[in-house]
Design a protein around this nucleic acid. Structure first.
Lengths: 162, 162
DNA sequence: TGACAATATCAGCCTAGGCAATTAATATGC
DNA sequence: GCATATTAATTGCCTAGGCTGATATTGTCA
């Protein structure tokens, strides 16, 4: 249960952090390419980031902008502008909440709902491609590892291994 | 060996891609925080991205800018500017190659070499913190999973699962 | 050798996220 | 009730990466 990396053998460029970043870059690039190549979705010029927002809204109906930010650790200012773009494309709608007028409730438009299944399908294809050769058990294990790393992130800098 | 995710159960926000992005964000933020908090390194105002470049140069001596770009899939234009910054901080040196005058050989300055061990130490601490509770076998397994995903990225869009 | 392709670096423009300050609305404490 | 704190959304400013084209240098091929 001790430290995983030690001072003599640790190679930053080959560590899990670097690998993670590179895999992420490749997955995002792959999804962007799919979104740009799809005949139906190409005109919308969607990015992977925008897909995540739409997927969040497609999941459980009505959310506020700040809910989204918390959910995907995204800057609030950047979120405002992303919502501007998605609204401009006619994929989402903003509604001031009557109960709490600070809030803006977000929902997919009909067009957003119509486009989502295809987006989800492309995303699924990319995920499966990157997991090619994995058994289902391995994939679940990987999910578990990443989840545990996220939980470890919560702990406020426990000053491990000075 | 079939697909990992299927159309009925796939939840984009909870898939490996999303998890990966979130873990990466947290790790980068943690490293940025460490770099900013360290008494010795704080004046250098280093970012996690800059650390990766320095780590690459600290590894095996002399590389060119394009070598770096290929190694970490980074834009060439962005690399030029990052090297400008690192040169401005006195951490690296540029040398036009005499053999091939298109190339710029890069190397750490004395100050760069002096600062690197501490940077590496902080990075190691962050990595170990995120892997808290992992056995060494699990960590190796995770490295293997990510490496396999990277290899899967190579295949030019095999049109899996249309 | 000479035309043309390829490569490395760099500079300009665009996009987009992070941060700080602002505004509006609500919650809290006295 | 009123002053203060808190929260949500927004805006402006800054930074930094991605893309395109320009320039210099080298490789290729006839």
């Amino acid at each position: 249960m001790g430290d995983i990396y030690d001072s003599t053998s640790y190679q930053p460029r080959k560590s899990i952090g670097s690998l993670l970043s590179r895999v992420r870059v490749e997955m995002l690039a792959a999804l962007d390419a799919e979104l740009a190549a799809d005949r139906r979705l190409a005109p919308l010029e969607l990015s992977a980031a925008q897909f995540i927002v739409i997927a969040s809204l497609a999941g459980d109906g009505r959310k506020s902008a700040s809910d989204l930010c918390k959910g995907i650790s995204y800057d609030a200012g950047a979120m405002t502008r992303m919502l501007d773009r998605l609204e401009g494309k006619g994929l989402i709608r903003r509604n001031r909440s009557p109960e709490d007028r600070r809030l803006v409730h977000l929902e997919l438009t009909e067009e957003g709902h119509a486009a989502y299944p295809r987006m989800r399908e492309l995303s699924l294809g990319v995920a499966n491609r990157f997991l090619h050769g994995f058994s289902k058990a391995e994939a679940r294990q990987l999910e578990g590892f990443l989840t545990r790393m996220l939980e470890n992130a919560e702990e406020p800098a426990a000053r491990a291994s000075a």
